[in-house]
Nucleic acid binder design. Sequence first.
DNA 1: AAACAAAGATATGTATACAGATCATGTTCT
DNA 2: AGAACATGATCTGTATACATATCTTTGTTT
Lengths: 101, 101
Amino acid sequence: MPETASLHTIGAQLRRARLAAGLTQEQVAELAGISRPRYRDIETGAAAARATTLMNVARALGLEMMLIPQFLVPAVDTLLSPESGEDAPAFVPQPEPDDER
Amino acid sequence: MPETASLHTIGAQLRRARLAAGLTQEQVAELAGISRPRYRDIETGAAAARATTLMNVARALGLEMMLIPQFLVPAVDTLLSPESGEDAPAFVPQPEPDDER
DNA sequence: AAACAAAGATATGTATACAGATCATGTTCT
DNA sequence: AGAACATGATCTGTATACATATCTTTGTTT
């Protein structure tokens, strides 16, 4: 199963976002509502999460899972590449805010 | 767990993409390497797929799963809104309709 | 040094995503 | 009308995502 590559790619992205946010694995796991061993497996690419779990983890890290038409991927990558999340650390939304002000 | 809403949102997106591509559930299932009953459950939001399975299904439909920083979501949505169907079958998804049935 | 915190890792048990088979309910055609 | 096709739906069994507990390792701090 060459899906291992995808798992590793996702995991690396999560790890980068987590370190950028200054959070521990345990903190992200709790924010996402999963256990630390499970988050570790996801971040290291050792196991695949469910789509819903990945969405919760992503939100805990300030990311949103989206399905992008393939022909728009280069454009989206351009949006992503020049800048990363503002380096201002120290707070991350919770999974499923449910309400907006 | 109101993750049911997320499941239905994803499923509706897959269904729109599938119909726009003129594919049957069975064709998408085969392209994605899963069974038809499983694809049906995913498309109808009856069950959550694994992240890897969702990626395979998305690719079969010309979509790519991406993790987008939340502050960039509006910009990406703008990219998505004007066009989307690439060629043959003319069907243009609306900005965010509910569900069709 | 010891103490602590964060991450790596394994084991056991449960929930659920999967395959494959089967049957029913529409649709849309000659 | 039937026939072919697409979808909805349920069942049995297997693979794996999950929780929880425990232990080790590495890195940092006093």
